[in-house]
Amino acid sequence: MAEQLEKVQAAVSDLDLDNIAPLVREALDAGQAPKDVLGAMCSGMAKVGELFEQGEYYLADLVLAGEGMKEGVAILEPLLVGEALEKKGKVVACTVKGDIHDIGKNLVCTMLSTSGFDVVDLGVDVHEDRIVEAVRSNDADAVALSVLLTSMVDSIGDVVKALESAGLREKVKIAIGGACTTQELADRYGIDALGRDAVEAVRIFEGFCA
């Protein structure tokens, strides 16, 4: 990897927020392709995920890296228009109906995006009908459901039923995550996977879309 790209990657993985944007510009000025600069940033983000799993980094560090990614991507985005970026799969993500907590869901979206997934983020408090519609219109491969409130876990079942009624359940894999989710809950609703955190979510969806 070229030195400029290594610096970009290191700035992301070291959470050197103030230097991410300048180093992205520097790499572009040095003639690096925007696609490669983005790749270096994503590698940095993958390293952040590893450090999170090893207990070196914490939730705020993941969020901070995500914010750094946004600053870098904002520079790259206009240059990437028309570039055919290879995607691992398409995921519809949201926090379920009745729940508005978004930190975990946002992190999953950031980690999936930076890991090469096409993510359709529907936001929070999302009715199952909107999820069905998003799966259909985007031809999605998988659904990521976040729920923090125990009182809202039945919303997961509503999504499963709605996908079944629409004849889409066999087409998509579903993963759940959030403070109140358990394997028992996943089994109850026939969910395909339970994720403990945003880093594990990447592995789960890579498995889904392999």
Binding site: F52, G55, Y57, Y58, L59, A60, D61, G104, A179, R196, D197
Partner: peptide
Amino acid sequence: YRSGPMLNP
């Protein structure tokens, strides 16, 4: 959270 402290200890 379930994944541990939100901020580095």
